[in-house]
């Protein structure tokens, strides 16, 4: 009973209900939502946004918004590709990932240094570094679309699971990158919940001064978060290239806001300290469903943005009013006591 009560307090729970209701509606109207190919398709489109969602989650919980991950992804993927090409190591896909992670971490570390040293708002700093990374990518390197080295091509062609819908004849495949997503979530889950550094991420976001006094190294934790974000973004960037079967430098920018909206819908608190991986997945799933599946119930794609906008506004309004209401109720309770 207590568990149930706790459940209803979590915003993840409500997102889950909305997802269930929405999927039932779509299924009832079209009969296609729970079709194997649609499910695989939805999972497939969730892979990269869910990886980015980790960046957004970590930065929001510990510090504040990070909007630089799409461009870190773009630049680090590009640098990794040209490095492996130059070194002639394109046969191995692991090498590309390793290089990308190294480059991404360096860029993330740059964010971290500026944010930690000067305590500037992370939104503005990451906006600035995004602009810098974009300038380096498209200005200095004049990056253009590129074919992938052999290793990544093989990875892109391989699939974990291939399904075909018997009725419609439509097929879909689950790419290898899904494994990377799962691995990242498992690692992040373990780090956040079972290491002191992970608890430190929440502690720092909850109260910076208390964290300092308790003995957490606030600066190191924040620096670490942004560096890790760089590495995660880089992995997401390579995954994106693998799934599109080529590298498209201009396709990366612009995804950040939807990812942030997804994690906030999933219960991540804008003020910091609160946010779960469950919420990341649910929020991303909800927005992916809306973008992918509206067409199944005969709503024109033209309406897609309207729906996404409305969901973001309604979702955030509900949680904003809820927390405002909660603070009011609390003061009433205080009176009664």
């Amino acid at each position: 009973m207590k568990k149930l009560k706790n459940l209803t307090k979590q915003s993840e729970f409500y997102v889950f209900i909305i997802i269930v209701v929405l999927s039932i509606i779509i299924q009832a109207r079209s009969g296609l939502f729970f079709a194997n190919n649609n499910i695989v398709d939805t999972v497939r489109s969730m892979i990269v946004p869910s990886i980015y969602a980790l960046c957004a989650l970590l930065s929001f919980v510990s510090t504040g918004p990070d909007v630089s991950f799409p461009l870190i992804a773009a630049l680090s993927t590009y640098l990794a590709l040209i490095t492996t090409n130059a070194l002639g190591m394109g046969e191995s896909m692991v090498i590309v990932f390793v290089f990308a992670i190294v480059y991404g971490s360096i860029m993330g570390a740059l964010n971290g240094i500026i944010i930690v040293k000067y305590k500037f708002p992370s939104l503005i700093v990451t906006l600035g570094t995004s602009s810098i990374f974009s300038g380096i990518l498209l200005g200095a390197f004049e990056a253009e679309r590129m074919d992938l080295p052999a290793g990544l091509q093989r990875m892109g062609k391989a699939s974990l699971l291939s399904v075909k819908n018997a009725e419609t004849g439509l097929g879909s495949t689950l790419p290898m990158t899904f494994l990377i997503l799962v691995a990242l979530y498992v690692i992040t889950y373990l780090v956040l919940n079972y290491t002191m550094v992970g608890r430190g991420v929440y502690a720092v976001g909850g109260d910076e001064v208390s964290a300092e006094r308790a003995g957490f190294n606030v600066k190191k934790i924040r620096f670490g978060v942004f560096t890790a974000n760089g590495a995660i973004a880089a992995i997401g960037g390579v995954c994106y290239a693998v799934m599109s079967m080529r590298y498209l430098p201009t396709e990366y920018a612009g995804g950040e806001m939807i990812v942030i909206a997804a994690i906030v819908l999933g219960g991540t608190r804008m003020a910091g300290g609160v946010g779960t991986l469950k919420g990341c997945i649910l929020g991303t799933l909800l927005l992916t469903m809306v973008s992918n599946s509206l067409i199944l119930i005969g709503i024109s794609v033209y309406w897609q943005k309207v729906f996404i906008g409305a969901i973001i506004i309604i979702g955030t309004a509900v949680s904003a009013l809820q927390s405002y209401g909660a603070s009011r109720v609390k003061s009433k309770v205080k009176e009664a006591a």
């Binding site: 002191m196 608890r199 929440y202 502690a203 976001g205 909850g206 109260d207 001064v209 208390s210 964290a211 006094r213 308790a214 003995g215 957490f216 608190r269 910091g272 300290g273 609160v274």
Partner: peptide, 22 residues
Amino acid sequence: YQDFSIFPNLTVIENLAFNQIL
């Protein structure tokens, strides 16, 4: 301290145990 040096977003357990663990 006046602000009690606590983490409002975490459980009582964690608030109590962090210092010693660290």
